[in-house]
Write a protein that binds this DNA or RNA. Structure first.
Lengths: 136, 136
DNA sequence: GTACGTGCAAATGATTTGCGTTAAG
DNA sequence: CTTAACGCAAATCATTTGCACGTAC
C-alpha cells in the first residue's frame, strides 16, 4: 500500500528545513509565512524568503505540515493530532481545539458519504475571541 | 441591539451588485473571483474586475455572502442554510454537504467552549473526489 | 443634488520562477 | 560525485487604491 511514510524517506533534511520544522513545532499559534521567515532568520540569518515559501509548500506536500487559511492569509502548523479550530471573525486569531467526541462523530458521518473518499475532517468554530468581544 | 439586519438597509443595490448576487445564487459551486467576473460580464459587459473585488468584499462584510478559501484561492457563496463542505485535496473542488445532525452536535459542543463566543461552525471533509481518485 | 459606486490604470503585496552557486547523502 | 536545495533578483498573479466620471436614492 502506498503510504505517506514511504514519501518521507526522500526528504533532504537541510538546515533550512530543520529550522522551519523546529520553529513550527515550538510555535503552535499558526504562524504566517512572514512569521516563519522572521523566526527562522534568527537562527539562519542568510535564509531567503523564497526558500521559506518553497519549503513550506514542499513540507506540506510531504505531509509534515498542515496549511490553513484565515482571511486570505496562509498559516502553517506542525500539529498532527487531528484537531479543530476556534477562529475569530474579527481579528483572524486562530486557536487549536480538541474534541475527540466531535472527531469520532464527524468521521462516522464521513463514512456514509458516497462519491468522495474522506481522509480527514476538521471543524471550524467561528465567533469572537475574548479580546475582540471586550472591544465592542 | 446592533443587528446585521439594520446594516442591510444601507446597501445601494446597483446593477453590478444585483448581478453579482444573482450569479452567486444561481451557481452553488463556490465560484472564484475570476469566475464571478466572467459570469457577470455576460450581462454587464463593461463591469471591471476591481468592481467585482470591491463588491464581493462589501457584500461579504454586509453578511450577504460567505467567503471560503481553498488552496489559497478565495471562493464565494450565497447559500445561507448552514452547511458543511467536501473538499478535494487534489483538485480543490468543493461541494456543499448537509448534515443537520452534525450541525446540532457541533453547536452543542460549541456551547461549552469558554473565552470564545461561537457564532457558527462548519466542518470540512477532506479527501479525494471521484474524478481524482479514478485518475490515480 | 449629493454621496456613494464605477471603471480604468497604476500600485501594492503575496507567491513563484530562473539560474548560477552550494551542500546533503 | 551528483542531484536536489539555496539565495538572489526578476517575474507573475491576486488584490487594492486613487481618481475623474456616472448614477441610485
Amino acid at each position: 500500500m502506498a503510504m505517506k511514510t514511504t514519501e518521507k524517506a526522500d526528504i533532504k533534511y537541510t538546515n533550512q528545513r530543520v529550522e522551519i520544522l523546529a520553529f513550527l513545532r515550538e510555535h503552535d499559534g499558526h504562524p504566517t509565512v512572514d512569521e516563519v521567515y522572521d523566526g527562522v532568520r534568527k537562527k539562519l540569518t542568510r535564509i531567503s524568503k523564497a526558500t521559506v515559501y518553497k519549503n513550506l509548500k514542499f513540507l506540506t506536500e510531504k505531509g509534515l505540515l498542515e496549511e490553513v487559511n484565515v482571511k486570505g492569509v496562509s498559516r502553517f502548523e506542525a500539529n498532527f493530532i487531528p484537531h479543530h479550530h476556534l477562529i475569530c471573525r474579527e481579528c483572524g486569531m486562530m486557536e487549536d481545539f480538541n474534541s475527540e467526541q466531535l472527531m469520532d462523530y464527524s468521521m462516522k458521518i464521513a463514512e456514509e458519504i458516497e462519491g468522495f473518499t474522506i481522509v480527514s475532517t476538521s471543524t471550524n468554530f467561528y465567533g469572537l475571541c475574548k479580546k475582540c468581544k471586550e472591544e465592542m
